[in-house]
Design a protein around this nucleic acid. Sequence first.
DNA 1: TTGCGCCGAGAACGTGCGTTCTCTACGGTG
DNA 2: CACCGTAGAGAACGCACGTTCTCGGCGCAA
Lengths: 211, 211
Amino acid sequence: MMRTHRENNRSPGGYADAMEPAVDSARTRIVAAADELFYGRGIGKVGMDAVRDASGVSLKTIYREFPSKEDLVLAVLEHRHGLWTRGIDTAAATATDPRARLLAIYDHLAVWFAESDFRGCGFINAFGELGAAHPRIADAVRGYKSTFQRYVDDLVADAGGPASLGPQLAILAEGAQTTAAIAGTPDAAAAARAAAVVLIDAACGDQLGTS
Amino acid sequence: MMRTHRENNRSPGGYADAMEPAVDSARTRIVAAADELFYGRGIGKVGMDAVRDASGVSLKTIYREFPSKEDLVLAVLEHRHGLWTRGIDTAAATATDPRARLLAIYDHLAVWFAESDFRGCGFINAFGELGAAHPRIADAVRGYKSTFQRYVDDLVADAGGPASLGPQLAILAEGAQTTAAIAGTPDAAAAARAAAVVLIDAACGDQLGTS
DNA sequence: TTGCGCCGAGAACGTGCGTTCTCTACGGTG
DNA sequence: CACCGTAGAGAACGCACGTTCTCGGCGCAA
């Protein structure tokens, strides 16, 4: 099974092949700059002028790549999903069994929460801010979250746990993110991990030792 | 102990005593209307004109009661905290022991998630949207969340559980809220409750039967 | 009744921002 | 060199919104 939680290769953009490199680097710079700004200040508080200044790409080029701010937000969310996926994958890389891979999720959260610019889950923030008015953004967030849910469910199945365990572990991860963001401390990752240990061992029959 | 999770009596406003009734009903109508609008659409998407139209109170009076939109947001958050507190208290009213009062939290979540206009936790949404730019709002949200954390911690102590259990149960509640909001289904409440049962019984020595 | 102060309705003002337009420069091709 | 498409800088436009101001009406004291 070993589902590796890959991101999609590319959004269906459709730009010419010959100029892919230059265009792609412009896209990359725009998305990277917008991601940092959106995440740090909230999407509504960041104007396209700020994205231009931070990326060094003119407004005209930004609007050629992304026909509207909403499209840029969607690209930023996809980018964040790639970061999240890679982080989970590297955290799980050294694990040898599904149980350890599940717990690696919370270890990754601990690393993330300790970053100085941590401000909660970008998907949750975007959903709370724009979900009601922008169905495409709400759908994208739903999709990313359910992808993660499937990842957890598959690991639970590999570990021989019941289907009810997956949602519980995902809820712990979600709650840790908002708790850490609001409290301003990374403690929630350790608490969620400890709870996950109890839940996993209670549900999976306790074949292995604790921790 | 029986901490009853009360809200504060009044914010330090300081308006004349003689006109309190009329003024208070204006405040109430403004806050009620703003609460519904802010929660349903997101704070940034609701103009003061919309608050005026929905409350039937003129802009002049709104600005006499709340010197700025930020002050109105703070009052709305306090109002929501009162609703949340009363909901938790009534859900816990029929419970006879601390364990049941803890589980009543998730029963209350299930009721809340099933409401047609449920759109996640208003505090989390406000924090994600405005926390970075409005420290007073961030502080208020932090305060409400830590009040809830203390409520849970006290119940855990009453139940004879270890201090580490309180944060775990609060994380479950937080995670259930965001999961239910994004997924659009109330299932997360039941999953969080089931996880809470396992965690409580594992930590408290399993004196009583399950569920 | 005459003045006075409060209030609601709504216009007005300033600002920020999403989006588009203009102007200029430049690099490659005949 | 002339030509063309493209890019950047930045102005411009339209709109939404937070906040303030104006106007007309209404209740109330003398």
